[in-house]
Simulated assay, not measured.
Amino acid sequence: MFGTFVNALAVVLGALTGITFKKKVPERIVNSLPEVIGLFTLYLGISMALKSQRTLALLFSLILGEATGTFLRLQNRLEMLGGRFTSGDSKFIDGLMTAFLTFCVGPMTIIGSIRDGMGDPSIILAKSIMDGVVSVALAASLGVGVLFSAVPLLLMQGSLALLGSIAGQALPEIVVNEITATGGVLMIGIGVNLIGLKRIRVGDGLPALLYASVLPLIIPF
Rank of each mutant, 00 (worst) to 15 (best):
K127F: 07
G184Y: 01
T180D: 09
G119Q: 06
Y211G: 06
T70M: 09
A67W: 01
L81W: 05
N31K: 14
L155G: 09
S113Y: 06
Y43W: 10
T86P: 04
I166W: 09
A137T: 12
I124E: 01
V146R: 10
L155Q: 00
D120N: 15
T182W: 01
G189K: 09
I93T: 15
S32L: 14
L64H: 00
V105L: 08
M97N: 10
K23E: 14
V6N: 06
L154A: 15
N177A: 14
F103A: 07
G143Q: 10
G196C: 11
G164N: 13
L42M: 12
G69V: 08
S47D: 11
L33S: 05
V185R: 01
G45V: 09
A167M: 12
R73L: 14
S135W: 02
G45P: 11
A57K: 12
G14W: 06
I174P: 00
L209S: 04
L33Q: 04
I29M: 12
G168A: 08
L215D: 14
K23W: 04
V134M: 12
E66I: 10
K198H: 14
E27Q: 15
G18W: 00
L197G: 00
G14T: 07
P172D: 11
A139R: 11
V214G: 09
N193D: 05
E79D: 13
I124Y: 05
N76W: 01
I111L: 13
G112S: 12
Q75E: 15
L62F: 06
F60R: 01
K51T: 12
L209N: 07
S165V: 06
I188D: 03
S47F: 00
V6M: 13
R199L: 08
I19L: 15
E35G: 04
L58K: 07
R201N: 15
